[in-house]
Structure formats: C-alpha cells, structure tokens
C-alpha cells in the first residue's frame, strides 16, 4: 500500500489493556487551570518508570465545566486499578490541591470508583466539609487562598495504552514536522492523549537488553546510525524515525487517532521526505489490541 508516495508497512501496532480516568481541572482562568493540568500530567510519559501515562485531552470553556470556570480535561492511564488509584492520589494531592484557585471533578460518570476528595479531605485537619449536590458528593478543604473544591470520587474505565505508529523520513526535521502536523490533527479528537513530550517519542524500544537489569532497550532495528551494524529495518534513504504513541479510553478512539495521525503524515507525503509508515509490536504476543496499519488506512 502506498499513499502519496508513502509506503504503508504490512504490520500492526500492539497495544495493551490499561485503566484510564478523565479528570476536569478548573481554575480562576485558563492559565492557572493549565498550570495545574500540566503539573498533574507531568513526568507521565511511560508506565515503565513514571507509574502513569497522562496528557491533556482538551481545554474546556466555562459553560462546559461543573463550576462554570475555565477548565482542562486530562486523561491518566496506568497498568492496574491499584496503580491508577495511587497515581491519582499523589498527582491530585501534589499538583491540583497545591495550585491556586483550582478545583477538580470527575470526568466520567460510569466505571469503578477512584477516591479523589475521599482521601485528600484529611488535609483539612477536621475543618473540611462535605456537600452532596445533585447526587454527587464534594469536599471543601480550607486552603490559604480560600477553599479547594474536590469531588469525592471519580470513575475509571478499562482503556487502551500503547497505540502507535512510526514515521520514517529522509531527515530528522522532516520526520519531526510530519509528526507535528499529525499531533495538531490528533489533538482535536476526544478520549485520547499522546503522552510523550509534544506527543512524539524518539526512543522507541524493543523488549529485552544485553544488560540483565533492563527489561527494554533501544529499538536498534529502527536506529538510522546503526543501519549497517545491526539487522536494520531501514533502507539507505531513511535518515530518522519518530513515533507517536496514543493512549485512549476506548479501542475505537485509539484506532481513529491512528488513522487521523497517519493521514496527516501521508498528506505531506514523499514530496516532504516521508518514505514509510510502520508500527511497533512484540509479535502479537504481549498486547490485547492490534491495530493493522493497512486496515486502518484502507
């Protein structure tokens, strides 16, 4: 399959079942809501070492948020319910409770419970108060700028982590610009985040390492500087490879994001130095979800 001069590899992205949650952070203005959201989703690129993968889903206007203030919708993913609950408690406690004027609410109505205010309320040292409004419980925790308003419980659902595609280009800059274009289009979609810096990752990994302590190591087959020294997947024209990783609340949302992203890359095409699209997988043995590139783009 070739689209606009870009060869689509006959391969698939392998993704994993995760637990995902949507939270809505509001604040006095968009700037402060973003400060809090950026902190909460910071250092959350890969579950391998961060405990969670997270990102900003979208900005929310005051008429969309529970308390009528500007807001940010964030998605957080982890490998298990237990880990997600731990990550949410830490991240909300350190990054939202601490952020001036902030409030935080559940973004999903269905799913398994994740304590928010239920555990954070103890920061109030007995001065915290709860309010049940329209069937939902909230906690008001006194803080130095007034009150931190936090919903008692949020909801988490079964989700998908690790949808991906690789952009193979003539040069590093061409690969990067194509990925930037893809990210712009993908960020318009609901229920997904691209957790790496700017949505793009350069250090794709393979399972295992020559060093016993490491469970993953650089994907040498896609490293252009090793083309002649390893069993490379790259021909002599490929100068750089970048990857876009997608986490989503549903299988369909990840698939849609991959399609939108890959089509954006294909629009740039061979004229822009894009040669191939490929994907990362583990032979289909590890992940519950497979996203075949040619099926998605047909």
């Amino acid at each position: 399959m070739i689209i606009n001069g870009v060869a689509i590899d006959d391969t698939f992205a392998e993704a994993f079942g995760m637990r995902g949650i949507r939270l809505i952070i509001t604040a006095y203005n968009e700037t402060w809501a973003l400060h809090s959201a950026n902190a909460l989703t910071g250092f959350a690129t890969s579950v391998i070492a961060c405990g969670a993968e997270a990102g900003i889903e979208r900005m929310m206007s005051p008429d969309e948020t529970p308390d009528g203030r500007p807001g940010v919708s964030v998605l957080v993913f982890a490998v298990s319910s237990k880990e997600l609950i731990k990550q949410i408690e830490r991240r909300v406690g350190q990054c939202v409770l601490t952020s001036p004027t902030s409030a935080i609410f559940a973004g999903l109505d269905e799913g398994d419970p994740v304590p928010l205010g239920k555990t954070l309320r103890y920061f109030g040292d007995g001065f915290q108060t709860s309010k049940q409004i329209a069937g939902k419980r909230y906690w008001r925790i006194p803080v130095m700028d007034g009150e931190f308003l936090v919903q008692d419980t949020a909801r988490m659902v079964k989700a998908v982590g690790g949808g991906n595609f690789l952009v193979l280009a003539d040069t590093q800059v061409q690969a990067l610009e194509a990925c930037e274009a893809a990210i712009v289009d993908m960020r318009k979609l609901p229920e997904i985040v691209m957790p790496f810096p700017g949505g793009v990752v350069r250090s794709g990994s393979k399972v295992g390492s020559k060093y016993k302590a490491l469970s993953a190591s650089t994907n040498d087959a896609f490293c252009p500087t090793l083309r002649g020294a390893t069993k490379s997947e790259l021909d002599e024209r490929i100068g750089a490879v970048l990857e876009i990783v997608i986490d989503g609340l549903t299988d369909a949302s990840v698939k849609k994001a991959m399609e939108v992203g890959m089509r954006a890359v294909c629009r740039i095409g061979a004229a822009g130095g894009i040669r191939r699209l490929s994907a990362g997988n583990y032979g289909g043995k590890l992940g519950q979800f497979q996203y075949h590139l040619r099926e998605i783009l047909k």
Partner: peptide
C-alpha cells in the same frame, strides 16, 4: 467575605 466555589454547583443544581 469569600468566594466559595461549591455555591456555583449548588445554585446550578
């Protein structure tokens, strides 16, 4: 005198 955020939810309800 203070702005209490929970009131916006209460009034909306």
């Amino acid at each position: 005198a203070h702005r209490l955020g929970f009131l916006s939810l209460l009034y909306a309800s």
